[in-house]
Write a protein that binds this DNA or RNA. Structure first.
Lengths: 211, 211
DNA sequence: CGTACTTGACTGAAAATTCAGTCAGGATTA
DNA sequence: TAATCCTGACTGAATTTTCAGTCAAGTACG
């Protein structure tokens, strides 16, 4: 019902994009069947070709849609106390792994897209952009949390942590480890990697990593 | 010539399994075409169905084959000096990411299998077994390298590191980061995670940790 | 009326799977 | 020894299945 075509996005469009995301989460990018998406969205297959010219178009639109979902979680980091800032990094990362249908759905889709991008480089570009943004976000949070950390160091740490989230997510999603265990591993790693980064005492004979 | 069926594995069987691995590395599990595997192996499509009942059977056998390839890299850790032991962990992990056709091929195939196991749980079981073995191997190496580390701690660290390898591999394989950068990230993380963690040993009030 | 939107049966190409048949070489018999 | 039968790995053309993509025919709204 209703027709706001030009305006934002008709309800059916949204339904289709959500259906596609669900299908991708259910059986992967390569397992996504156009007919299944149509059925899931409760529309006819032809409609998908009317709006998105072909399967690739639907996929591209869905990718963008997922990207938007994922990156809209950007949080406001200003107006946080020192204690909170330290916890900010942790929350930002831990939020990617929890027992929440939407989080899991997006995570599966994201995981799939990354796996597919190895074989189809047209997927790689938007993906790498979003990944880079994520890294920057985390790096900022790290700098904000501990003042002794340089931008470069924070950047490397952020890359490590976001990669780790993806690695742990893989095992979590395939049911090899529980949500709690995944979060435990992540927490441990965050603690270890974000404290005493540079030449802070600790081992005396530390190799001079300060760069 | 000759018929050693019972013995080890006929040459054609091996050829088929290797061909399948190559095809998977080239275009993914879902992109693997039975006819392409046959062509790659230089046999007829029918032979694949003669040996493995169907596509799924071929896939399962190939998974096992890849698993074997991957886990046969188990190294001997005895007879290493203290210095070498410390380096052992590093090598064990860094060997997963390097500019070598075979390493990359196996890595791509492994990555694919992990991604697919999210959707097809029959793939998950052998995969999780191999992953567990890998964790144990790394955990042993960690314990051997630093005596103050408990089994439990080493186990957690190993899980973090192997997850990290998988996460970094994903970005490396899709061309988002270079081999050198991937190795740099991994090295940094290993150093940070394997140098005496404060928590257990009662280091004299060394915990300047924010928390 | 016309324009935007929607349908679902249909098409064709690509891929999986089948199957009737070939062939090499090992056993059995005389 | 040789003639015969058997077995089972192997072939590749034929068949079946699966899907992305098309299209003629609506519906609803202005």
């Amino acid at each position: 019902m209703s027709t706001y075509y030009c305006q934002s996005m008709s309800e059916k469009l949204t339904r289709i994009l959500n259906a596609a995301t669900t299908c991708i989460a259910r059986s992967g990018v390569r397992g996504m069947r156009v007919n299944d998406v149509a059925a899931e969205a409760g529309v006819s297959p032809g409609l998908l070709y009317y709006h998105f010219t072909d399967r690739a178009g639907l996929l591209a639109a869905t990718l963008e849609h997922i990207n938007k979902q994922v990156s809209k979680d950007d949080a406001v980091l200003s107006s946080l106390g020192a204690e909170d800032r330290s916890r900010h990094v942790r929350h930002l990362l831990l939020d990617e792994i929890k027992d929440d249908a939407d989080v899991r759905r997006n995570s599966v889709a994201w995981n799939e897209l990354r796996a597919c991008s190895i074989f189809e480089q047209e997927l790689a570009e938007p993906l790498s952009r979003t990944t880079a943004e994520w890294n920057i976000e985390i790096a900022h949070a790290i700098v904000a949390a501990s003042e002794g950390t340089s931008e470069d160091e924070a950047s490397v740490t952020a890359e490590i942590l976001t990669s780790l989230v993806e690695g742990i997510s893989g095992r979590w999603l395939s049911g090899f480890i529980t949500t709690d265990h995944a979060r435990h591993l992540l927490t441990t790693a965050i603690d270890s990697l974000t404290t005493t980064r540079p030449t802070t005492r600790q081992e005396p004979a530390a190799q001079g990593r300060g760069k």
